[in-house]
């Protein structure tokens, strides 16, 4: 029953993008009688300026993340954290993903792929990893791009709040999976 619903939702999701691309102009053209082509082009012009405006912010944040990742600092950190992790029942295999997730989307996807290949999709470790991946976001990247696009440099409490949300998502992923699937 549940499986049918989930499959149906995921199938329906395939039609959302092409559906929207047709339905929105359809509504504009036939219900509101606006010049959809001209309006589209006018809106599309902003795409270039926004994309170019975020470049310096992206360079700043991605270079810092790249240096951190390549240095092996994550592995060093992991060694120090091992005793604490065991005490709270946090699988050490999932820690690199948890630390990587707020930093890099491609990096954390790589780590998740690695977990699935090493332990199998049916393992609890892979399931925890996939849940982590789906329930958190690349906070640093999103903040850099979103604030960068409008030139905001003082981000106030956005970063701590985003990281708290990530932490809650990551710990929830571990304990909910252990509870429901373990």
């Amino acid at each position: 029953m549940l499986e049918t619903i989930i499959t149906a939702i995921n199938t329906a999701a395939k039609f959302i993008i092409p559906g929207l691309l047709v339905l929105i102009p359809l509504y504009g053209l036939f219900v509101k009688k606006i010049k959809v082509y001209e309006v589209f082009v006018e809106g599309a012009k902003d795409g270039f300026t926004i994309a170019v405006r975020i470049i310096p912010y992206l360079v700043a944040i991605l270079v810092a993340i790249g240096m951190f990742r390549a240095s092996g600092a994550l592995d060093l950190l992991l060694k120090f954290m091992a005793p604490v992790l065991n005490a709270i029942g946090f699988p050490p295999e999932n820690v690199p993903l948890a630390l990587m997730r707020p930093l890099s989307g491609s990096g954390s996807l790589g780590l998740l792929t690695d977990l699935v290949n090493t332990y199998g999709a049916d393992s609890l470790i892979a399931k925890i990893g996939a849940t982590m991946f789906g329930s958190t976001e690349t906070t640093f990247y999103v903040l850099a791009v979103y604030f960068g696009s409008v030139g905001v440099t003082k981000s106030r409490h956005a970063l701590p709040a985003g990281l708290i949300a990530d932490a809650v998502g990551i710990f929830s992923a571990v304990y909910i999976c252990k509870l429901l699937l373990g």
């Binding site: 929105i24 102009p25 509504y27 509101k32 809106g43 795409g47």
Partner: peptide, 23 residues
Amino acid sequence: AIGLIGIMALWLGIMKIAEESGL
């Protein structure tokens, strides 16, 4: 950022239609 230009243009164009038509 460069890869984003095309996708941005596409969605911002569609958004403009949604906006002008009151959706």
